[in-house]
Design a protein around this nucleic acid. Structure first.
Lengths: 333, 333
DNA sequence: GCATGAGGTCCCTTGTAGGAA
DNA sequence: TTTCCTACAAGGGACCTCATG
């Protein structure tokens, strides 16, 4: 509550001297420092960062705004970001938008007013990166490709992961593979379909995967799996592009009395929401979430430091494919 | 980037007029307002909240610092807090301490410097509430009882929940019940044991529940369940005081080849980490998490408004007991 | 070189006062 | 005079530059 000048007064020095003691810079004699420290303690002085930031034009604060903090995926990103930020002398302010575009905009504006030094967020629409560009506010985009090209971004290698998962299925002998993914204009959804197609192409087969564009919901996974099961010839393998879709797929297969992997091989991105009571079962491509958070912060801080516009970077981190028990040779063979 | 005086200059008015337009207070003619709004758009003006807060001595910002944002429990609290805050014209800044006391202190100090209007946090130690009291910073404590008595707090009715769960077991005929809970100096852990004891007392039985004090980890649940199974007479029911402990209990029972509920009835607080693929199975006491967040914010904001020290409140919210399939009559009967 | 301080600056809004209809 | 609109000056807290001993 008390301000620097009150501390100064009590210690019989000028405010700037208190500042020097607090921030440990400039010359202060041991004797003076002692008096100031006593005054600080007696008055319960806590420096007011508003004044300091106003003056220094820095808050040493980064905003990380995410759709669903409760998700394991975003949670790990937040961890990585936080650790990296602390290491670099920054703090992270977390915002949770609950998947709402309005809330995202609201948070971003709120934090911009607060003069946060930089932003990290998932670009769910185009106009937000544009907004930041226009206002010359530094930011790094996460998880998705950000369309605009003067943008720094960090994401996982969806193409590569999908390629590997599909290749794995092809090598097992599957030829009819259903790919259930998100909307075509999400880079992650698009890239995962693209990776699957590429694997088919590279295998030199005339076949093509069957692509279902939907969204990332459980309901979509259920619906499109049912559709896929109704096609002739019926697919022998399903690639669910997200863990949400995977759940829908599992439910639909269960309903159709199809066993995994005996009757249907299943692969996916990310794990089904973790249950410590169940052994990991699915063959999946796992994204380096912690690392994504870390690199996003490091890129942002580097940008803050140089602030020269060098070239913008689109960092794509490798994905790890883990073959477990949800895949086997197709039943027909 | 541009400041209020630049906008004012371009619009041919005084800074204060721009302020009036932005904040919608005071008298501004439609014509002037128009000119100012144009200038704001042309200059991409975003008000600097540092200056404003410095002057007004308010940030309209609340800090919510939690141990594990990824937990369903804390996630829902955050939701409730966020919604309530927005409704009341406040913003929430989220901090995740990852269970670390150091990180908690770090966050709290950081946000205090940033002049956050008030704090909500889980009092994992005594000296933090003391710190806030000393500095006269408004705060509300969450989840646990806060020892100090000049403190506002919001928590769930652990005693009542434990009482009901235990009563349910007693009514089924169980007499040997093991209660596995956290450390004795956590109010939640203590209260749950107390509720169980109270249920025994009220049933007028000479018996006593068997209390195991540990921590909230899975490992503790596993360990104490094994210990309980080794006692004679062996308990016919286990009350795991948290979902973490419950997992350990389940694993230990599985290892001992004991079926739930045929060989052992099990009750717990909170659900096992949610898996959408498994039907809810356990008889549990569920805490009103969303409501806890909401009430914490409302209490804090009320405190901020009156700032008179009336009496402090310890809000205890009711817990809902849901009887499902993990409990039945004891095998011996 | 060492130790301290006065003054100006960052951006915004409060309190108060003045001008126009 | 009353009502409306606009503006000046003064902080608010911290820190940098420059000056002084």
């Amino acid at each position: 509550m008390s301000a620097i000048h009150e501390v100064a007064k009590r210690a019989g020095v000028a405010p700037i001297t208190v500042s020097r003691v607090v921030n440990n810079n400039g010359y202060v004699s041991g004797e003076t420092r002692g008096r100031v420290e006593v005054a600080i303690r007696e008055l319960n002085y806590i420096p007011n960062a508003l004044g300091a930031s106003l003056r220094s034009k820095q808050t040493k604060t980064l905003a990380l705004v995410l759709p669903h903090i409760t998700d394991k995926f975003f949670g790990a990103i937040a961890q990585g970001a936080e650790d990296a930020a602390n290491r670099l002398g920054y703090h992270i302010i977390l915002g949770n938008t609950d998947g709402s575009e309005t809330k995202l905009e609201d948070y971003l504006l709120f934090l911009a007013k607060k003069q946060v030094d930089g932003f990290i967020f998932v670009p769910t629409s185009q106009h937000i990166p544009k907004f930041f560009l226009k206002h010359k506010i530094p930011f790094v985009t996460l998880d998705r490709e950000a369309i605009e090209d003067q943008v720094d971004s960090v994401r996982a290698d969806s193409v590569g992961g999908a390629f590997q998962l599909t290749k794995h299925l092809l090598e097992l002998g599957h030829r009819h593979i259903a790919v259930i993914t998100g909307p075509e204009d999400h880079s992650t959804a698009y890239d995962r379909a693209a990776g699957a197609i590429q694997a088919f192409k590279e295998a030199g087969l005339g076949d093509q995967p069957q692509i279902y564009w939907g969204n990332h919901s459980r309901a979509a996974g259920y619906e499109y799996t049912k559709q896929a099961l109704a096609t002739v010839p019926r697919p022998t393998a399903i690639f669910a592009a997200t863990d949400g879709l995977l759940i829908g797929t599992i439910l639909a297969l269960r309903e159709a009395n199809l066993r995994i992997p005996e009757d249907m091989s299943v692969v996916a991105f990310d794990d089904v929401p973790y249950s410590p009571l169940v052994d990991p079962f699915f063959t999946v491509a796992i994204q380096p979430t912690y690392e994504m958070g870390r690199q996003a912060v490091e890129l942002l801080v580097a940008r803050l430091a140089k602030e020269g516009p060098d070239e913008f970077r689109d960092i794509i981190l490798p994905v790890e494919v883990i073959v477990r028990n949800s895949t086997s040779v197709p039943a027909e063979i």
